[in-house]
Each structure stands twice: as C-alpha cells, then as structure tokens.
Design a protein around this nucleic acid. Structure first.
Lengths: 279, 279
DNA sequence: TTAAATATGAAAATATTTTTCTGAATACCA
DNA sequence: TGGTATTCAGAAAAATATTTTCATATTTAA
C-alpha cells in the first residue's frame, strides 16, 4: 500500500525526492529502524526532503510513516517474481508475466478507493451522457469501455482522436461526464481534452497511475491504477491490465445497479447476439 | 509475542509499572500512535517508568518498541471471494472482481502452453505481415495488440470490420499470419474471416477460451485463455483480462527478441513520445 | 532577459526520548 | 532502635529527533 503509492507518486517527485523514494523502495525493511536523520543521511538529502516525501505519501509525520511501513512489512509479502531477463526461456517469461500481471492487479486494488468508485458509479448512472477519452493504447481501452457500458444502458461514446475529443468536450455541460484514461497521466492531448470538458461544466474523472500528474489537476475525481514495480520493465511490457481492472470494477458496480433496475435487460442482449454465434 | 512477553513479565513489575502494562495490554492499537509522553500521561506514570517497562521488554528504546508492536499488530487480511451478489457493497464488489481477475490470470496460465507461444512468436518474427482479427470487444483488443506489436517492429495491422477482414484475409499468402481473437470462439464473422485467411495460405492463430469451438477448426495453432469460473457471472462481467494476458506473454517474448536484435530501438520510441508528454 | 515558481537545505523552533540525579519508602542488620 | 543499603518513582537535565520557517539556488515561463 505505502510502497505501491510511492511508485504511483514516483514520477511526480523531484530528483532529490526520488533518491529518498529509491532508498525506500529498495530497503524498506531497513528504513523502519532509521530515524529521519539517518534516512536523510543514507539517501544523501536533507531531513526536510525526507519529511516532504513522507507528507506526500499522506502521513502527518515521520513516526506515523514508520509505524505504517512497519505494519505493512509485517504482513507476509507476496511472491515477487524475479525481473525479466533478456535470455529467459519462454517458460520463464510466461511465469514472470503471469506474476507481474497478478501483482499489478493486487497493487491496483490497494490504491483504488472503493468510495471513489462508488461515487463515480452513482454519478455515472444519473449522467445524461458519458464520454471516454484516451489516445493510443488508452484510446482502445476507452472504446472498449464505451462499448461495455453501452451494453448495460449507459449512454456513452469514446473518442480517441484529439480533435474530436476537444470538440466533443466543449459541447458537454454539467449533466455530462467525461472519463479520461492515461496510464502516466502526462499525455498532453488527453489532459487538454479533459480540461476542456471540465471547463464546459462536465464532471471529470481520470483513470491513471500517475499520482499528482497533470491529468489529476483536470479531474474532479481520480481512480488510481498501479504502476509497474520494476521501472526497467516498463518499456518492455505495456500491459493495460491495471486500467482494465479499474474498469472491471466500475463496470460490475454499474451492472449490478442496472440489473436491479431492469432484470430482464440481460436476457435481451443475449438474444440479440445469438444469431451472430455458432452453437 | 511482545504482549505475551509482557504478560509473562507482569508479576515481576512494580505497581506503577503494572499500570503501564495494563494500558498496553488493553489498548495496544492505540499505543502505537502515542509518544512516550502521551502514554505516560494515560497510564498516569512518568515517562521514565514507561521507558523502564520498555527496556524490560527487551527493547533499546521507545521507538524501537513501537515499531515492534506495530509489526505484531498487523494481521494479514483474510482472502474472501464468494460469488457476486446483487446487493453487495462496492467494497465487496472490489474484492470479488480483484479475486476473479487474479483467478482468471491463474487459470489462463494453466491452459496456455509455453511451447505454443514460442512457436507463434518465432513464426511471427519471420512473417512478412501479421493481421489481427476481431469484432466487438475483441476488435478493440486486436487493435490494441496491433499497435503494441507495431511498436517493436512487427509489420502488423488490425481489422475489426468483417468485410475488411474478409478482403484482407483473401489477400494474404503463406508469408503472412492472421491472429483471430474471440473469447467464445463462436463468432461467425471472425471464424469465417480466419478461414478465408487460412484458405489463402496464411498461417492462422486464434486466441480464445473456447476449446473445440468453431474457430479452433480454422486455426493452425490455438492460444487458450481461460473461461470464467462462475458461469452466472459471465453476463455480468465481460473482462478481457485473459486475452490481455495471452497477448502480454506473446508481446514480451517478441519484445525480448526485438531488444536482442536492436537494443537502441527502445530509446528511440521514448524520444518520439516525449514531446507528447508533460514532465 | 526578467519575473515567477519550484526545489532544496540550513537553521531555528519544538517535541520527544533518554540519562542522570535526588528524595522517599522500605528492607535489612548490628 | 538507629543507621545503612536498596528499590522505586519522578523531576530535571541532556541528548536526539522532528517539524517549521526562511533564505538561496535553480528551473520554468513570459
């Protein structure tokens, strides 16, 4: 939880603060025995910087942070897969990717706040229109999300073209909702589009792993996904599983509500799809 | 451990020290948030007395004691995953979806054969062209996959329109490869398109959970993903995570190969994307 | 290029922890 | 019994640690 959060925050930290984060991520077990002065010394920064990182993690003070870290480290640690290696056999890659993806889900479940999902779901159900925004890979997820939510009766659409995003964003108002997807939270086009939607009065949501990233500024509420543990791996894999999970949860909540409201709708959908299938 | 020890020590403590012990035994959860001064106040003794008790417990100092206590009190949370219920709270839904998605990944890792992945990867690397086929949700995955593989130098494209699929399929030959994605394996359009590709001489692959489904007939090789455990859940969630995992594995294998061949390519990609980002 | 914003650490202000010391209560013994 | 030692508790002092404030670089934007 704390370390997961730290990874999410990582990109938004300054160089000096990153030194603290690096030390923390590398040897959390040692840190719980250090005073702030010692940690500052080892990370080669001032106490003030350590203190600032701790505050950014949401703690009121260093002691409180250490207590939290101690609690977290006491819980048995998940099986950490070793890092990917260039000359791994396919069998090894399979195991590692599986573990990594599972870990990504676990991490996401730690940073994703149920109350936020709940709030977004409620708001979504009474929005006139919901638009999903994303470019590149995130654009595909946006489209996929739009299709899924449309199936359960939400009036929704997705835009992955920046120009269309801005145009549509400008036409939204306070009855509407815009959900932007960006893994890093730093994609200019998406941030800008969401800001336009917000300026137009729409309720804005973002799905991102980038805590404190630019997109969070343009969001009324942020649903956090996790960031990969091994930063070196990031360029190798670009799994969208964390975002998928966030959407799975949101979708399931919405679906349950929809089911409560119209229990017969699901049979209908199935009937419509039947002729498209064999069996 | 600490509290047990304290109980063992109890009889040997002085009356004043027992007041500290009593407080500790009664509300250990509170104590980890107190300073020695606060605890002394609540137990109505001096800091010195608290300090002495702590030393008797074998700690070098009060902070060290608190860390120890915090670790001890952190209890691993139980893993509960019952089936989804219509009136579950959002918190419950979150836990259940998380467990379900993790289970989906585990299941997929059991049915996915490393040797098949290896074979597909090798073949993919020496194919002239790779086309991804899929409609609906699977179409989005196909597009996403195409984009990812394109990034590592595979000449690839995706078609989610059935007409285009057939047209393109008919133009492939034995140098080419077609990868169809269909969760059930029973979508007529996709099966037909893949069959056309196969008839044209292309090497055909399918990613599906439907063992023995129609699409497997049209495939030279099948990469299996898992099917949801609870069939009742299927209409509620329609997570694409199993397919994502299969692609993650395939993608990672290919990427490692690409990295071995052109180690500098990855820096290049990052440079191209940089101006699109903040930070 | 200047102005504004941000980042960093030094120093000061607080707060906490640990040590030292003193007085009181009790025990022990000639 | 009176004197001395021992134990106990806390006050005060000393040592440490944490947090706040402020000044100075440094970067970013205009």
């Amino acid at each position: 939880m704390i370390l997961t959060k730290l990874r999410g925050l990582y990109r938004s930290l300054s160089e000096t603060e990153k030194r603290v984060a690096d030390y923390l991520l590398e040897r959390p077990d040692d840190v719980i025995h250090y005073t702030i002065t010692e940690l500052a010394h080892f990370a080669d920064v001032s106490e003030t910087t350590v203190y600032r990182v701790v505050r950014k993690l949401g703690f009121n003070g260093y002691q409180e942070f250490k207590i939290g870290l101690a609690r977290e480290l006491a819980t048995p640690r998940p099986i950490v897969s070793k890092t990917l290696n260039v000359d791994d056999k396919v069998e090894d890659v399979l195991i590692k990717v599986v573990n990594d993806d599972i870990q990504a889900i676990r991490d996401t479940s730690e940073v994703l706040k149920a109350e936020d999902v709940k709030y977004v779901a409620e708001r979504m159900l009474r929005s006139r229109r919901v638009v999903f925004l994303g470019v590149g890979s995130s654009g595909k997820i946006a489209e996929e999300a739009a299709a899924r939510f449309a199936r359960v009766g939400i009036y929704t659409s997705a835009y992955s073209d920046p120009h269309m995003q801005v145009i549509v964003g400008a036409m939204l108002d306070k009855e509407d909702m815009a959900i932007a997807i960006s893994h890093s939270g730093t994609i200019r086009d998406t941030v800008k589009s969401l800001q336009v939607a917000k300026d137009s009065g729409a309720f804005t949501v973002s799905i991102t792993s980038g805590m404190g990233s630019p997109i969070t500024q343009a969001s009324d509420i942020v649903l956090y996904s996790s960031v990969r543990r091994d930063p070196y791996m990031e360029e190798f894999t670009s799994s969208r599983i964390p975002e998928m999970l966030v959407l799975d949860v949101l979708f399931t909540v919405i679906t349950l509500e929809a089911y409560k409201a119209h229990p017969d709708m699901f049979r209908k959908i199935d009937e419509v799809l039947k002729p498209k299938r064999y069996l």
